[in-house]
Amino acid sequence: MMSLKRILSIISFLTISILLLFAAFFISIRFGANNITYGDITNAILHFDSTNPNHVVIHELRIPRAIAALFVGAALAVAGAIMQGVTRNALASPSILGVTSGSSFLVALAFAFYKDPSYVMIAVHALIGAAVGASFVFGATAMARGGVTPVKLALAGSAITALLSSLSTAIGLKFDISKDISYFYAGGFASIQPIHIKLAVPLILIGLILAIGLAPSISVLSLGEEVAKGLGQNTMAIRILSTVAVILLTGAAVSIAGMIGFVGLVVPHIVRPIVGVDYRSVLPASAVTGGLLLLVADIFGRMINSPFETPAGAVTALIGVPFFLWLARKDGRGL
């Protein structure tokens, strides 16, 4: 049973992060080339006027961008938390184990085959690629001699990422789409359109709901395979459903934002010391914190080199690397 202190810390953590999330959301909408005031934002939401250029900018560019950052952050963070729980590996996350790179690789193929692929096409490829990446991870785990340590799994994921991004570079040069691909690989929100939101956000929501539904089982599984089986859990079914959730979340995130690393790794580690190890609280807290992190990363990315944009993926990497190094020193333990 959760102690009262734990419940209080969960509630206060969620309240504070949701408040910060709202603040970041509004700052993200306000920040950009056009000078927009907070009054404009509330007006644009409450009394939309299609002749007012500021309102149009807010509706067509800024709000979709902020929503994208929010949902991509939530999706990646929850995907990372699920992977860490199910594989019991502190280094697990979509980008480190190669799920993101599988997804991005298939998107690169989509650019090569269809020249100017529609967003639906990109999303389909991103989802298939995430599935391929996820099966690589589990295939490697199943095939390796004498089990796979967290560190080895992370190393294999990095090698797969190196392989796939090299192949993508080759494809980019061959089909003369290097720029599209390297832009996609950098990972960011500069070209978000309303259409992206309409398709990706429902996918992410389905993934999040599935994840929350699985939360109690993931908590049990994170204690170990034997414990879970002893408690009568169908571990295979949980693993498969968790993988489906990870594929939905990662694929949808990659389809609109490209390769964004470290969110899925870092966020669950920030959240766990505060809200505990029960995934019923870890997953929602990760979602909120992940959304907040990417919103802030995107705002920073627009500020550092203004008027140029630094991709949010580079910003999260700068935040994530020290964290990753700290985990590496602990040899991937610390769950």
Binding site: L91, T149, V151, L155, F262, A317, L318, L325, A328, G332
Partner: peptide
Amino acid sequence: VKPTRMILVGIGVNAGFTAGLTIFQMK
């Protein structure tokens, strides 16, 4: 210096430098 840890740290350092590169490349 444990072998796997060394490689993992290397990967992290790699990622850090690459992110740094991206920021400069954009400029």
